[in-house]
């Protein structure tokens, strides 16, 4: 299940929903990304996420499908915010349910690395010194490269 929404979400509710869907799974791993209060030593007053409606959802769905092929998971749940966000707010929720923990951990790790580098969102930070666009860092691309076929 994939959702891209402007409204806030409750990670606990999302986790419970996946647990209900994936009844019989041996475990669920999850990750919640939060809006940072500081970025490169600058205070962040507000973050704005722009998405491309339709294209963004299709791209995330394709990434989730790749994860389902790659890891023996029973279910995957991704919720991503767009619009204005305040520091501390959940921005992304990713969870995977599987028979065994390794597949669940790996699927979440893989999904986050791909979302960071490929999900069509553009981030603008608003701080005391003005605003700036944020793009994937080299460290994000290096994380993504760990999953390339060797």
């Amino acid at each position: 299940m994939i959702r891209v929404q402007a409204e806030p979400f409750d990670p606990g509710v999302e986790l419970a929903a996946l647990a209900a869907e994936a009844a019989g799974a041996g475990g669920i791993a999850s990750f919640v990304g939060l809006v940072r209060a500081r970025s490169d030593d600058a205070t962040v007053a507000r973050l704005e996420l722009i998405h491309y409606p339709g294209f963004t959802e299709r791209t995330i769905a394709a990434i989730a499908e790749d994860a389902r092929w790659r890891f023996p998971v029973r279910g995957v749940r991704i919720v991503h915010r767009h619009g204005p966000l305040a520091p501390g707010e959940p921005i992304v929720f990713v969870a995977a349910a599987a028979e065994h923990r390794r597949a669940a951990f790996d699927a979440v790790d893989y999904l986050m690395d791909r979302l960071k580098t490929e999900a069509p969102f553009w981030k603008r930070e608003h701080g005391p010194v003005g605003e700036r666009w944020i793009e994937a860092r080299d460290a994000d691309r290096a994380d993504r490269a760990r999953w390339e076929e060797g």
């Binding site: 992304v92 580098t117 069509p120 553009w122 981030k123 994937a136």
Partner: peptide, 10 residues
């Protein structure tokens, strides 16, 4: 037509 610079999801 959409022009897409590098993204920053997550």
């Amino acid at each position: 037509v959409a022009f897409l610079p590098p993204v920053s999801g997550g």
